[in-house]
């Protein structure tokens, strides 16, 4: 399974793997927001946590169809299905690779972009914490969506339509943690909820993803 993880990360980093695309998208979204809402500092300060979370979520969404579609097209998925790896392990590793190549860079880039949106100093810790806890859930849920749409040609739009409603709880609690943190309020309750959602999805959703993938392969 580690071999699969290493291969996926290596594929993403090599030329044409799309590594960095999500990051660039995140940057552009965050840069465009002040153009849309105006440059008033206090407004940007108050919406910064939400913008950063939304930007990270959309950047994540953008790269979801690469998780499984490429392996589906070149036949690797058939071969993985007949390999000794359990399908649940395959989808978990795929989600982990997606997080390492998309989610983690977003977490690292977020504080830099937060400076541009004038996030108050006390908000940086909660922002990074909420993204570290929340983005794994985005990858795991996204893998489920990717597994559902893997057999659909040009399924990118359908994938977004299926995955975005599933992202609602994560987005709400994640953005709430960083918003409360930025306002200097107590954020332990939403943080616990966010952690609960992430742990729950990591534990249970791979079974659903694997079941869906088996249906799509037959």
């Amino acid at each position: 399974m580690i071999a699969l993880l290493i291969r996926d990360v290596r594929l993403a980093i090599r030329a044409g793997g799309g590594f960095g695309l999500g990051l660039a998208f995140f940057l552009i979204v965050v840069v465009l927001v002040p153009f849309g809402v105006g440059p008033r500092t206090e407004l940007l300060t108050s919406i910064a946590p939400g913008i950063l979370w939304l930007g990270a979520l959309l950047a994540c969404l953008l790269s979801l169809d690469r998780i499984l579609a490429l392996d589906w097209e070149d036949g690797s998925l058939d071969l993985l299905a007949t390999s000794p790896l359990p399908m649940e392990g395959v989808v978990s590793m795929k989600a982990l690779a997606h997080w390492l190549t998309t989610g983690l860079p977003l977490v690292i880039a977020a504080p830099v972009l937060a400076i541009m949106l004038n996030l108050p100093p006390q908000g940086f810790g909660p922002l990074v914490l909420s993204l570290i806890l929340g983005t794994p859930a985005l990858s795991v849920i996204g893998t489920f969506g990717a597994a559902l749409t893997v057999g659909v040609k040009r399924g990118g739009l359908l994938l977004s339509l299926l995955v975005l409603p599933l992202y609602v709880p994560t987005l709400i609690f994640g953005a709430e943690v960083s918003r409360r943190g930025a306002e200097g309020m107590d954020f332990s309750t939403p943080l616990a909820m966010l952690a609960g959602i992430t742990c729950g999805t990591i534990a249970i959703l791979p079974f659903a993803s694997a079941a869906v993938l088996r249906v799509n392969l037959r």
């Binding site: 409603p165 609602v168 709880p169 709400i172 609690f173 709430e176 309750t189 939403p190 909820m193 959602i197």
Partner: peptide, 9 residues
């Protein structure tokens, strides 16, 4: 989950 999240929100 969304129902509870939204209530909280």
């Amino acid at each position: 989950m969304s129902r509870y999240a939204v209530n909280f929100w």
